[in-house]
Structure formats: structure tokens, C-alpha cells
């Protein structure tokens, strides 16, 4: 049996092209049925369609036959007309194996090491399995890919450290508070950076959020989206009593929270940690706050430095991941060769 993979991803094509080839769940089911008919039930197929990649993994007796089946599939699903614009990368056998292992491990993702793709590959395989199109080869191929993906994530630092300012801030918050579901976030200013950071914190489990902004309507819009509450900008200092995490990102030209104004509120809070994230330039929060007990103050530069270091670490981790992939690809290719030889012997 031969393996073929066609890949259209954020690496080689813009979204305008990718969207022409994407498959809905229903379309994927139909495509699997069509492929079964084209190949006379002999071909195996798994379709992966996410916002960043459209990939076709197919197996059949020879490369030529599989290639012809895929062309017919494009034709019959109304996508052949778009082929002139698309630059599908084609991988065969060992190269296809390496490619799927990289995808499942998150090495091919836009944010290296992200974990969402693992679930998406699993879902694609489950759908193909449900349609009866994942045979012996693709079954083994995908199960191995899941094992390799897990191994890469657990044995390298590929997933460690945020790769955006928001993710880095959320990770630091977890170092301080552990589980963020108990934390109360106060967002000061409705700027894009502040919003992204608040979203990253919400994604990590924060359930209570308060928003304040000079233009109250903007704050209200964000608060209603996040099921949070708003306070008037004039009285936001009082919120320091409740907040565990303060994200400040206003466009003010001077410090909006001087040390002497914050001190009475910090004293009233008692010995509870507070994480202050100052994303504004010029800075919103008095830098002297960082020296106060139980205050952890990070500004934009601090977060960017950590984020850059995390990215560097992930690139280093890719080398370790490649070593795991090399061994796994070698094992799989040798299993595939043995299995083909055994089948040939059996048919002789």
C-alpha cells in the first residue's frame, strides 16, 4: 500500500485559497462516500479541514492510483476548478508519515506546539473511521501519529511558555494563583492589547471580570460579552480591594495609579497577592508599586522579554521533537515495508 498526503496550509496559501477547499462536516462525510465509490472500496482516506489547513491523507495500491482517485474526488466535489490557484504540497510514503507526525505534534502549526490541532486530527480520523474509510494502514498511521504527538508534547518543552503577551501574562498569573477560576480580573481601559490579555485570562478559567474605561459604553460592550460588570472610570481604585489581577492598558499620558493613591487600598486588602499587568505606553501604573509586598507588577517590556524567550525555547524544543519524529518515522516506514512484503508473500 502507498500513502499520499496533499497539504494546503497557512505555510503555502492564503485564506482566500484555503476557504475554497475547506470541507464542512457533512461535506466530509459525502467526500468519504464518494472516495469509497471511486476506489471501488479499496482506497483509504482521512480528510483534515481546519481554518489553517486542508489536508488529504489517502492510501491505495500505488501512488498513481491514489493520485487519480484524489483528482476524481476534487472533480466530483466541485473543487477541481480551483486547482489552478492552489499549490498543494504533495508528500508520499515516508514524507507523508513525517508530515502527519509533525502536524499532530503541533510543529506545523502557526503557533508552534499549540494543542488544538491534536484534537482536530483526532476528530478527522474518527469521522473517516465512522465512514468506514480508515483501513488497516491509515488506522495504524493515525494511531501512531497520536502516540508521537503525545510523546513530543510530554517529553519536550514544545508547549511550555506563552507565545503572546496575553498567554504569557496568563501563565504568570497561574504561577501566582494556581487555578484562575477563583480570580477576579479588573480590566482598566478597553484597548486591543488589554482586551486580548483579558481574553487569555478568561480562556484559562477566570470567571469574574470587571471592566472600566473612560468611554463607559466601550466598557459596557466588553463586559456584556464576557458576562462581567462595569464600574465608572472615576471610581475604579476601589475595585483594587476585590481584584486579584489588574490589566491596565489605557492611552493616558501619565500614571493613572500612583503609589500614594494605591497604598490605602493595598493596605485594606490585607496579605493577599495582586498581579498588576501594565500594558500601556506610557505606563499606567506607578513602577514603585512593584516593590510593595504581595504586588507582582509586570509591564509590556517584561512580558515581551519573557514571550521572546519562550519562543526561543520552543524553537530549541523543536530540535528535540525532530529526534523523536526521526525514530517514529523510521519505525513506521519499516513496519509499512514489512507489512507490504508480507501481503505480497500471502498473495503469491
Amino acid at each position: 500500500m502507498s500513502l499520499v498526503c496533499l497539504s494546503l496550509s497557512h505555510h503555502n496559501s492564503p485564506v482566500e485559497i484555503r476557504e475554497k477547499f475547506s470541507f464542512s462536516e457533512q461535506a466530509m462525510r459525502e467526500a468519504h462516500d464518494i472516495f469509497g465509490q471511486i476506489s471501488g472500496g479499496e482506497g483509504e482516506l482521512v480528510l483534515l479541514s481546519t481554518c489553517n489547513r486542508i489536508e488529504i491523507y489517502a492510501a491505495g495500491p500505488t501512488q498513481q492510483e491514489v493520485g487519480a482517485w484524489i483528482n476524481s474526488l476534487f472533480d466530483l466535489t466541485g473543487r477541481a476548478g480551483n486547482m489552478k490557484d492552489a499549490e498543494f504540497l504533495r508528500f508520499e510514503d515516508g514524507a507523508a508519515v513525517r508530515h502527519l507526525f509533525k502536524v499532530a505534534s503541533g510543529l506545523e502549526s502557526m503557533v508552534v506546539g499549540e494543542t488544538e490541532i491534536f484534537g482536530q486530527v483526532k476528530k478527522a480520523y474518527a469521522l473517516a473511521n465512522g465512514c468506514g474509510r480508515a483501513g488497516k494502514l491509515l488506522h495504524r498511521f493515525f494511531q501512531t501519529a497520536f502516540r508521537v504527538g503525545k510523546k513530543v508534547r510530554s517529553e519536550t518543552e514544545i508547549t511550555r511558555g506563552g507565545t503572546s503577551v496575553g498567554a504569557t501574562a496568563a501563565e504568570l498569573a497561574e504561577h501566582i494563583f494556581g487555578n484562575l477560576s477563583r480570580c477576579h480580573v479588573l480590566l482598566v481601559g478597553a484597548s486591543d492589547t488589554g482586551e486580548k490579555t483579558a481574553r487569555a485570562l478568561l480562556l484559562r478559567g477566570v470567571s469574574a471580570i470587571t471592566v472600566t474605561n473612560r468611554t463607559h459604553e466601550k466598557a459596557a460592550a466588553l463586559a456584556s460579552e464576557w458576562k462581567g460588570r462595569t464600574v465608572l472610570f472615576e471610581g475604579w481604585f476601589a475595585e483594587l480591594l476585590q481584584a486579584d489581577i489588574v490589566v491596565s492598558a489605557t492611552s493616558a499620558q501619565e500614571t493613572i495609579l500612583p503609589l500614594h493613591e494605591a497604598r490605602p487600598f493595598l493596605a485594606q486588602r490585607g496579605p493577599r497577592p495582586i498581579f498588576m499587568i501594565d500594558l500601556a505606553v506610557p505606563r499606567d501604573l506607578d513602577p514603585a508599586l512593584g516593590a510593595e509586598p504581595d504586588v507582582y507588577l509586570y509591564n509590556m517590556d517584561d512580558l515581551q522579554t519573557i514571550t521572546e524567550q519562550n519562543k526561543k525555547d520552543r524553537r530549541q524544543a523543536m530540535l528535540a521533537a525532530e529526534a523523536i519524529l526521526d525514530a517514529a518515522v523510521k519505525d513506521f516506514v519499516s513496519w509499512q515495508a514489512n507489512s507490504s512484503n508480507w501481503n505480497k508473500e500471502k498473495n503469491r
Binding site: 511550555r160 511558555g161 497561574e174 504561577h175 501566582i176 494563583f177 487555578n179 497577592p273
Partner: peptide, 10 residues
Amino acid sequence: AWLATIPSLH
């Protein structure tokens, strides 16, 4: 790096 593996302050 190794401090990232110890529990949170909380």
C-alpha cells in the same frame, strides 16, 4: 526553567 515546574504560590 525548573521553577516553572513547582506549584504556584497559592
